[in-house]
Design a protein around this nucleic acid. Structure first.
Lengths: 188, 188
DNA sequence: TCTAGTGATGACACGCAGTGTCATCACGTG
DNA sequence: CACGTGATGACACTGCGTGTCATCACTAGA
């Protein structure tokens, strides 16, 4: 016998996701999640800051990868050129699961105000990671912030298109298309 | 004698703001706010959805004004041209108080994760109001969403610059400058 | 082999956010 | 003078999130 199952966090994540799908986020309590994972309520809060956090465990890696891509880009490229060159890497690394998982997850998020706010916060974290990355490369602070916002917009809009009912295009193609459209839109 | 003071909501707003300034958002309880306003805890929650909401009472008007500006713009203008023409109106209407008030308010917001999330939500509401406004004018759905995001970025960045320590420029000028910089940044 | 950590967990108490429900009270209306 | 109305108060209750201490399996060192 081991002293404890070493995958407590993953069990909690999965139990939370399943319960949110089965009965909704609001009507799922933390004690329920913990019980399904075979753990106590207290242990849940040792792994996640709050109930919403169980749905956003993966997202913590996003700002890190963004910063890495920016830092490792060849010199001489502008912020938006760096971003455009990283589309494929991000599309494959951050969206490795089945598309149906992300659709289900997005449905849960859309069903609750608190979860929508939480998602906006992860996008804000991406903006900040990109901004500071661009500044490290020597960009003007305001230009860096603007480029970071533009980048986050491209990703947010592309993912929305990718998860929409009609779409069958791969994410990387949508990222490129959304990027081009944004460049065109920004010409007044 | 009146049966009750008719300005309950305003008293609660002011009491909340003052207490947040004096002792911080997290260490201020709703019963405290209600007591300072001379009301019960239950009444606080009749006026505001939650504790954070007392800091965002004004912001509910923002999406409405944005939608009105878009709807009343002359035909033939592109989304971003409409936005640029509305800079002065928004700067004067939505920021009528003393600048020191907005600085203080922003300090409170920055001090708490939940408040930052709440602010992101109001920005998302602005994006949605602009998006649907642009769609009503006949824009392509994706282009409308992109233009709405670009607009919200210009406002968010401009307000940040306006409230930053160094700045003395008027908000309308910063809006125009940020807009120009964004157009330039979006050229890869 | 004995012993003193160590790290994840459980158990329990607690403060506070937010809601449902009913009573109250001042007012307007017939 | 009786009745309805709308804002408020009082109270109970659920659930989130935290602080604190005990437990238990394992590990490193004497």
């Amino acid at each position: 016998m081991t002293r404890w199952q070493p995958d407590a966090r993953e069990r909690l994540e999965r139990a939370a996701f399943d319960l949110f799908v089965e009965q909704g986020f609001a009507s799922t309590t933390v004690p329920e999640i913990a019980a399904r994972a075979g753990l106590s309520t207290r242990t849940f809060f040792r792994h996640f800051a709050d109930k919403r956090d169980a749905l956003f465990a993966d997202e913590h890696a996003v700002p890190e990868q963004a910063a890495r891509i920016v830092d490792e880009a060849p010199t001489g490229l502008g912020p938006l050129q760096i971003v455009a060159s990283g589309f494929d890497a991000v599309a494959s690394a951050q969206f490795a699961r089945e598309k149906s998982y992300y659709i289900l997850r997005q449905q849960i998020i859309q069903s609750d105000d608190g979860l929508r706010e939480r998602q906006l916060r992860t996008q804000a974290a991406l903006v900040e990671a990109l901004r500071s990355g661009f500044v490290r490369r020597g960009s003007d602070p305001v230009d860096a912030l603007l480029a970071a916002h533009l980048t986050a917009t491209v990703f947010s809009v592309s993912i929305g298109r990718w998860l929409s009912a009609e779409s069958t295009e791969p994410l990387a193609a949508l990222l490129r298309d959304t990027f081009d459209r944004m460049v065109r839109t920004a010409r007044p």
